[in-house]
Amino acid sequence: MLNQTNSATVISTEDLKVYFKNGKIKALDGVTAEIKKGEVVVVIGPSGSGKSTFLRSLNMLEFPTAGKIIFNGTDLTSEKINIDKRRQKMGMVFQHFNLFPHMTILDNMSLAPVQLKKMDKEEAKKKAMELLTRVGLADRADAYPSQLSGGQKQRVAIVRALEMEPDVMLFDEPTSALDPEMVGEVLDVMKELAKAGMTMVVVTHEMGFAREVADRVLFMADGKLVEEGTPEQIFGNPHSPRLQDFLSKVL
């Protein structure tokens, strides 16, 4: 799927720390990682391991206490940069979808591109319809979010982020809030996206997805990056006792 040696780095973190309550809680305790263009990186780990905090800090939804986040060559933790501009290039999908309940699906999708003057209304609408067709939801364009099933909501959330044409997509446990029979439809969309070459960082409990789609798997525990490698290495030949213990519980 990808030639790692030749790929440019999209996001990298250097000794990233996120502390809460004046340092009493170390949600993220010095993580150095790198995401390359076109790569699908899956982050796994027990709950409370800091994997969601790591993902959320990549677009500064969580504010780092120390360390750097380099996105396309710029340090996002710098005071001078306009974070809104950078976030336009980082799509994010949330566990609870976070669709805007007072807007139709179409308006959900075109709000940001139109407000940020990326496209005019017609263009945004056209692009939204294309994307909705791709995920099989073109007929729901005028519905409100509350009229959709969980799986449909999450597919809309994914294409809403795609509408901004991001360089990277961040997924924060995208299937955790779904009924089991809807997990598949969302994972299928994500697989397709991976195939199309999108750079993706995915926090998930779906080990099957990690095995099948990931180029690289990061295992986190206690706010630290404990082990990383290809799915074969992580699932087939885990080194650290922490990872072995985790895998024995989830597999």
Binding site: N59, L61, D84, K85, R86, R87, Q88, K89, M90, G91, M92, F94, H96, N98, L99, F100, L111, A112, Q115, L116, A157, R160, A161, M164
Partner: peptide
């Protein structure tokens, strides 16, 4: 209003 709504808006690049 759910905090997720603000996060979704900000993550799309809105101010």
């Amino acid at each position: 209003v759910d905090k997720g709504q603000t996060e979704a808006g900000r993550s799309l690049g809105l101010s």
